[in-house]
Each structure stands twice: as structure tokens, then as C-alpha cells.
Design a protein around this nucleic acid. Structure first.
Lengths: 165, 165
DNA sequence: GTGTGTTATGTTATAGTATTACAGCGAGAA
DNA sequence: TTCTCGCTGTAATACTATAACATAACACAC
């Protein structure tokens, strides 16, 4: 089972083991590859929104993205951001966290995968489990119920160990 | 594994095996019992909101509830509805479906339970799985990750068998 | 039953999230 | 060139939720 704590919470832990600049540029490079492979157009606007999401490296809201764009002097309206988000989700490059109305870079966009997000209602940090056993069991049960799941992205709400203490 | 398809989708199927009036009144009676047991006050407003939710018997939005109240001649403002919803969730009488920004009566408020909701992105119907195996596995993995879950209510997005066809 | 603290509700305003609708622009195909 | 199609710009609006403060109802002690 892989446990990937988002960079923001790593920073909060002040462990600082994370070369963030490199991490962002790697995500952008991967995104380029993915889009090329699939014949999708990662336009400058879309790429820039993705960059902002990865720069934050924690769930970020659409209007937060918008205000960052505006701080850069761009005067974009909400549809610009929502269109980009919509494209990025379609390409599998980001996840939407419904619980938070927020968006998060996908760690492994190259292959479809099931993710389970642990969402802390106190600090809003998100930890991503990538547990194949959960995914398998779920797939089986969902299918048995005659349902076709888009993905198996789950959100589990609660308290992270830091906030519980 | 229990599969409970919401009444609204049953109606859509026009099977009509469902005595809805009775179903609503039963839910209200159960709510009374639950609140009495736990020392909670199911006030007229709260009860009425719960009744509207059960009358719909499918996910219903806060503003939909509000407009039904207004059709009855009541002039409630949003906080009235949100307060009632908040109370009802706290009492375990309803679930919030984040994916839909909507609220749904809880089928078994007497005992805490984990539920998995299959949410159709096409018709917005919700089917509730109540699978103990999923709940168990999840509980184990979540705990291992040092997280304390509030509940194990999951939302799985996709297409129901009707919409897929 | 009167006071008092607590819980619930009323009311206004506003914050936060997302979409519709239509116009314009630009690159590649016919 | 002209057309088309996908992307972007822009304005308006819809939808969802909460803050802040005032008032009312209830519960309990005295």
C-alpha cells in the first residue's frame, strides 16, 4: 500500500525533504507526454493552471487559482479556470475533491488507477492511499450492483493524526 | 450485501412497489425515537425538513427544500434550512452527498453504519450499498494510515445500468 | 412564576462555487 | 481563400453556503 502525503502537509511537518521546483516541472513534463500520447492539446492556459495546482501541491479551489492568475496581471474570468480544470480532469491530470470543492494534481496520470483520499476536516490536508485491495473489492461489488464506475476515487472524511492530537 | 435503490429510481422504473406515504411516516417515527433516545430535540422545523427529504426520497438540494417551504407559504431564509440539515446530519438522520450538493434520508439511523453510495452522473440517482466487507477493509487501511475517519460513507461516481444502456 | 442561562430561530447581507450564452480568434483542411 | 472547429474572452447569472447579530422559546433553579 502506497501512502503519499501531499507536499503541503510535508511542509507543515517542516521535514522539507521535497524539492518542490523539480516536482512541479516533472509533473508538467509528464503532462506534456500524456497529452502528446493521447492527442490532447495542453495549451498555455491549461498548462499554467496545472502548474499553479502543482505549485500549491495541496487541494486548491478554482477561485484561488483565479486570484493567483489575477496577481500575475492576467484578467481571467471564472470560465477560463473552469474550462482548464475540466480539460485537466478529462485528461486524468488532476482530481477533484468534492468534499473540499478543490482540485489536486494526480500523482500518476500515465496509468488509470484507483485512489482513496483521506480528507482532514480540520486542516483540509489530503493523504492519498493507493490500495489495490480496496480498489479490487470495490470494483467487484460495484459491478455486482449493475453500476459502471468512472473511477474509484474515494473520499474519506475525518481527522489526520496531527489534528486529532 | 444489501442493495437499496432509492424510491425515486424505483418510481422511474414504474415498478411502484413502494407505499411512499407509509415509508415517510415510518422514517419520521424512527427519527422521533432516535432523538428521544439521544436527548436531541426534533423541533417542528427540523422534522418538517426531514419530511420533505423523505417525501422526495432521492437526493435533494438545500434550495430545493427552501423552495418547497416557500410554496407552502413559509418564508424561510437559507440559514433555517442549513441549520436543520446540519442538525439532521449530526443526528445521523440524513446523509450529505457531496458529489451532488444534496441530502438524502438515512435508511438505518438507529445504528451507525458505513454506507457506499453509487452516484449516477447522468440521472443523479443514488443507490446505497451497505457492504460490511468494504467497511471492514477500509477501516483497517485507514487506521493503518494514522487517520481517524468520521464515517465510511463513500461516493462512487459513474453510470447506473439504466443510463448506460 | 420569575430570573437566568442555553438552545433554537429570524433576518439581512454576503461569501464562495459554478455555469450559460454568445462573441471573437486562430490554426489547419478543403 | 474560405470554412470549420476548437479554444478563449466577456458579461451576466445561477447555485450553494455562511457570517453576524437580533429575538424568541425552552429548561431549570430558586
Amino acid at each position: 500500500m502506497a501512502i503519499m502525503k501531499s507536499a503541503a502537509s510535508r511542509f507543515a511537518d517542516s521535514r522539507g525533504k521535497h524539492d518542490h521546483r523539480r516536482c512541479v516541472s516533472k509533473a508538467l513534463r509528464t503532462a506534456d507526454e500524456v497529452c502528446t500520447e493521447r492527442g490532447l492539446r495542453l495549451t498555455p492556459t491549461r498548462k499554467h493552471v496545472l502548474e499553479l495546482i502543482w505549485t500549491r501541491h495541496a487541494p486548491i479551489g478554482a477561485y484561488d487559482i483565479l486570484s493567483r492568475l489575477s496577481k500575475e496581471g492576467r484578467q481571467d474570468a471564472p470560465p477560463t479556470v473552469y474550462r482548464a480544470l475540466s480539460f485537466l480532469m478529462g485528461a486524468g491530470l488532476i482530481h477533484r475533491i468534492d468534499t473540499l470543492n478543490a482540485y489536486l494534481g494526480c500523482e500518476t496520470p500515465k496509468h488509470l488507477h484507483a485512489a482513496q483520499f483521506l480528507v482532514c476536516r480540520s486542516c483540509r490536508a489530503v493523504t492519498e492511499l493507493g490500495d489495490p485491495a480496496i480498489a479490487r473489492l470495490l470494483a467487484q461489488r460495484v459491478k455486482a450492483a449493475g453500476f459502471t464506475a468512472d473511477a474509484h476515487d474515494l473520499e474519506i472524511k475525518g481527522l489526520c493524526d496531527t489534528c486529532r492530537g
